[in-house]
């Protein structure tokens, strides 16, 4: 291990899975054996991903820490850097450093019913936690997963979305904004799934990730359903350069998304002055 927090570790791309037209899941293996052995993370944490000549970008880990040795990043093509990552092939090297950030409060979730609500690529960090929960199935209560995508072809992790409902006490509901001719499922924002989901704030924690607008509508409904502000957990996305609490870019009020977040409870989030 080096003592330079800005120096990335090299990782080889072992597998690339095309989730949708603009989302790919990259399976990585660290080149340094010692680092590979010592590497561990928690669901909700992120990595700073280097594409040399282009720079770095923060990406949530989408694999489960219950499967040691596996590091997956599911990346949506959003800007020039993520575009360049999409151009990579199996066997290519990229740089990664991390894991960084405050994770989902896994210990608090034990024994509780869990409601996951995701929009678009927001399912990536939740996938890490969902698979972790399902890998340790007996430790958690009922699992309900709601996902909203723009169109049927924008739904990522299709294989898992169909595998998860087969687990004990697990339910998955998916909706799209714009259906195609073959879509038989729900249509509309993710909040249209409440009736089918049959959830209550009783003994349940909600974990949400998606675009800011989706988060605010979902939170409003959850509060009405009786969820307490501490039991609504979400993640925030901000521009980041260092990932380690120095560069100042990801600040929100007196907090830094990279070290104080990216996971916040709603009680914490509502105190953050979003434009300060």
């Amino acid at each position: 291990m080096n003592n330079n927090i800005y120096l990335p570790q090299l990782a080889v791309i072992k597998d690339i899975k095309e989730e949708t037209g603009d989302i790919k899941t990259f399976t990585l293996a660290f080149k340094d054996r010692k680092f590979k052995k010592s590497f561990s993370f928690r669901p909700g944490q992120f990595m700073m991903v280097s594409v040399f000549q282009a720079g770095e970008v923060p990406i949530s880990i989408s694999s489960s820490p219950a499967q040691p040795g596996i590091l997956q990043l599911s990346i949506k093509k959003a800007g020039s850097l993520t575009g360049k990552i999409h151009g990579h092939k199996v066997g290519d090297e990229i740089g990664v450093r991390g894991p960084y950030g405050r994770s989902f409060p896994v210990e608090r979730l034990i024994g509780k019913n869990l409601l996951f609500v995701a929009g678009g690529i927001g399912l990536a960090p939740l996938r890490s936690l969902i698979n972790y929960v399902l890998d340790k199935r007996t430790e958690f209560g009922r699992v309900t997963i709601l996902h909203g995508a723009r169109t049927p072809s924008d739904i990522p992790f299709k294989h898992e979305l169909s595998r998860w409902p087969k687990e004990r006490d697990a339910k998955v509901l998916v909706t799209v904004d714009r259906p195609d001719s073959r879509w038989r499922g729900s249509v509309g924002p993710v909040t249209t799934l409440w009736n089918k989901a049959d959830v209550s704030g009783q003994d349940t924690l909600a974990i949400i990730c998606g675009p800011p607008v989706m988060i605010s509508f979902v939170v409003m409904d959850l509060l009405k359903m009786g969820f307490s502000e501490d039991d609504i957990i979400s993640t925030l996305e901000r521009h980041m350069k260092c990932g380690v609490g120095k560069c100042g870019h990801c600040s929100i009020g007196h907090q830094l998304t990279c070290v104080d977040g990216p996971v916040f409870t709603y009680r914490e989030m509502k105190k953050l002055p979003t434009d300060l």
Partner: peptide
């Protein structure tokens, strides 16, 4: 003031 940028 310490804020910084990192790029390649």
């Amino acid at each position: 003031c310490y804020c910084f940028n990192i790029f390649d």
